[in-house]
Amino acid sequence: MNPHSFSYFVRITFIYYCLSTYRFFAYRTLLTFFLLTASQAFAVNHYEVVINKSVGESNISANSLRSVFSMHLKTWPDGTKIRVFVLADDDPLHQIFSKEKLNVFPYQLRSTWDRLVFSGTGQAPIKVNSIEEMFEKIISTPGAIGYLWRANINENVNVLTIK
C-alpha cells in the first residue's frame, strides 16, 4: 500500500466515521423529538375523570366539573350526593388535572376549600394518599368522583367525558 492510498483510506474511514457519528446524532435527535412529541400527546390524554358505577352520568360540562371540584355543586342530576376524592396538592396527577381539566392552580383549589371548611359553608374533598386508594374509594363509594391514570382504569369504574 503506498502512502497516498493509505492516506485516502484514512480519510475515507474518517469520513465514514464522521458520517456514522453524525447519523447517530441525527437519529438520536429525531428520536428525542419523536419521543417528546409522543410523550406530550400522551400527557394530554393519559388520565381520566372517573366515577363510581352507581352514577348514571356519562359526560359533564367543564363548567360543572369545575363546580364539583370547587365543592359548590353537591348533587348529581338525579339528586344523589357527589363525593369528591383528590390526591395531595403536590401530587403530579392532581397538579396536571387541576391545570388542564379545571384550568386553576392547585393552590387556588386549596384556598377555595379552606374558605368553605372554615366558614362552615361547605366541605372539603376527601384526600386519598395514593392512586390505589383513589381506585378503591371510587369503586366502593356511591356517588364518588375522582381521577386516575389510564393504566389504573378498568371496568370497575366509569369514565366521565368532558363536554
Binding site: 360540562s61 360543572s64 369545575r66 355543586l73 379552606d114 374558605r115 372554615f118 366558614s119
Partner: peptide, 28 residues
C-alpha cells in the same frame, strides 16, 4: 349544573371582604 341557590340560617360568619369569613384561621 353549575348554578346553585340556597338558604342558610343560624349563627353565620359575616361575609365581607376576601378574608373575614376565615380570619381566625392562620392558614387562610
Amino acid at each position: 349544573e353549575a348554578n346553585q341557590f340556597g338558604i342558610r340560617a343560624g349563627r353565620l360568619k359575616n361575609p365581607f371582604g376576601f378574608y373575614n369569613d376565615t380570619r381566625d384561621v392562620p392558614f387562610t
